[in-house]
Structure formats: structure tokens, C-alpha cells
Design a protein around this nucleic acid. Structure first.
Lengths: 160, 160
DNA sequence: CTAACTGCAAATTCTTTGCATTAGT
DNA sequence: ACTAATGCAAAGAATTTGCAGTTAG
């Protein structure tokens, strides 16, 4: 894997331009910052990092930029149920492959798994096609998450 | 299907009691109201309906009760991306079978589909087992949603 | 009886909007 | 230059919390 698909600033610039958007300093920065952040940062966390490098950035801009990047397919948006929206670069822009999430409903721990993904993706693709046909939808994406209790929390419950 | 699995007040009463909770008037009412509501009502909508029959109910109680019912597996909770949390009775309590959702990101229309579900559930079950083993999680549930643009919105886009 | 539950009001938290200013192309 | 994008302050919306009074078991 190792960044094989990583995209440079040039690519993002063109990607945005093509869709009629400008490639601005805050946008470049947010892409850069998010690409370097592990896990699934919230708006606040992204703002915090961006602010370190460019103190005049506003929280509003972070909100608006993330919304734009999600809309143009550069960033993925998740709700893991902790009350804040979380983000990550779409796989292809980070050298990561497509993955799904396993969420501990007790402590919030998130595991990204890629095992078993191939079979899942095949079935999801098949389902997408069938749904498109049957309901006349242009299906664009899917969300698959598993919820449970992680081993740490399981142990805590046994002997509290 | 036809309510084959529908549960009566007695069942809910015992279900809550077993877990150490009381079966109160507001709780009974919310279960009743939600069971009768089609689609995926928000907290406000559930409150509105409940309020008709029992005007002294408070919005806070609706929030707290739904949280409780979700926690005890009676109700399912969804985020379809419109900024409010949405709910429905878990399939078995409504005579509905397990289903997934197809969401129009343009107008918010939700389609519940049950086609292909059997195959999906088989694979999801298999994945749950594998994830449980590999990551030591006790997997409790999953969420699968498809996003796209419905035919109405597709048409609007062609000729605006 | 008495601990759990309720309802109100106030507080919090996340997110969006309006608008004057700045900056990309 | 011309318009999209930004940043600030203020508004808005959903959800949570504190607490005194009520109710189920």
C-alpha cells in the first residue's frame, strides 16, 4: 500500500478547480492537516491542528471546507454516535484501502478492519446495482459499521 | 408477517423490569406511540404525538426514554444526515422484518428495502463472527446504509 | 416507604448564518 | 476586476443537566 495512491497538492488543486472551486490556503491546509492525522478527527480537532500552522483560520472555515471536501468525494464523514461528526481522507487519498469500522459502544474505541472486506465489497456492489435498478436510485456510497463491546470494556464489566 | 412478532404491554413491562427499570406511564406511551408511527420519526415528532395523548409529558422524558429503549434493544436509532436523530421500533416489535436503508442525499427520502437482505445478513453474521474472534469484540449490531440520488431528484437535475 | 422517574428551566454543545473584508484566478 | 471564500460575531438547533416534586413497586 504505502502511499501508492497518495495525491499531491497539484491534484487537489485541479480537482477543486474542475468543479468550479478555488484552491485556497485554508483548503490546502485542511487537506494537509487531515491527511497527517491518524484516526477520525472531529471538526474541533482538525481546527486545532490547522490553527497551529495558520492561527488566523476560523472554525467556520473548517466546517465549510470539510463540507466541501465531503461533497467532492475527497473526505469521508462518519457518525460514531458520540455526538460529533468525524472525518477521514477517502482511502485513495491516503494510501489506505477501503475499510469499515467496528465501534465499542462502551468506550468509543474504533477499529478499522480490512479483513473480509473483499467479500463484503462484492456483495455491497451487487446490492447497490440491484437497488439502483429496483428503486431508480443512483447509488453513490454506502456505510457499514459494526457495534459491540471491546475486550477491555468486557473485562471491566466482569469484575468492576 | 402481519404482526406475528408484535409484543404487548405485558412483554415490555417485563422486559424493562428484568433490567431493573420501571414500566411507567410515559414509557408505555412512548412505546405505543412509536409503534404506531410510520417511517423514522425524530424526537420532536415522537414528542408531538405523545403530547397529544398525555399533555403533561416533557421533551426531556422523551429523550431519556428513547435512550433507554435503544439501550435495551427495543428501539433502533439512526442518523440519516439531516441533523436529527431518528428512531424506529426494532423489527421484531413491529411485525416488520429486518431491513436496511437507502437514502437520497438530495431530498432525504428514505427507502426501506428487504430484498437481498437474506444474503446480506448471512454475510454480516459471518463478518461479525470473524471480527469478534479477531478483535475480541462482543459484536451486538450493525448499521448498513446506502446513499444516492433518487429518481425524482435525478430528473430535477437533468432539466432544472 | 423510598429509590427511580419525571418535568421544568437553564445550560451546553455542535453547527449554521449574516456580513464586511480579503484573496484567487 | 470580479466573485468566491474567509473570519468574526451572533444566531440556531439539538440534546443534556440540575433539581425539586411525583410515582411505581
Amino acid at each position: 500500500m504505502r502511499g501508492r495512491h497518495r495525491r499531491g497538492a497539484r491534484w487537489f488543486s485541479e480537482h477543486l478547480r474542475e468543479q468550479g472551486y478555488r484552491y485556497t490556503v485554508p483548503r490546502a491546509l485542511i487537506i494537509d492537516v487531515l491527511s497527517a492525522m491518524p484516526g477520525h478527527p472531529s471538526v474541533e480537532e482538525i481546527y486545532f491542528e490547522a490553527h497551529k500552522r495558520y492561527p488566523q483560520i476560523g472554525l467556520t472555515t473548517v466546517y465549510r471546507t470539510l463540507e466541501l471536501l465531503v461533497r467532492t468525494g475527497v473526505v469521508l464523514k462518519f457518525d460514531f454516535g458520540d455526538g460529533r461528526t468525524r472525518f477521514e481522507m477517502a482511502g485513495a487519498f491516503q494510501g489506505k484501502s477501503h475499510h469499515h469500522h467496528l465501534i465499542c459502544t462502551s468506550c468509543g474505541k474504533i477499529v478499522e478492519y480490512t479483513d473480509f472486506i473483499k467479500e463484503e465489497l462484492d456483495l455491497l456492489k451487487k446490492t447497490e446495482d440491484a437497488l439502483s435498478k429496483k428503486y431508480g436510485f443512483a447509488v453513490k456510497s454506502h456505510l457499514l459499521q459494526f457495534y459491540g463491546v471491546c475486550y477491555v470494556c468486557l473485562k471491566k464489566r466482569e469484575q468492576p
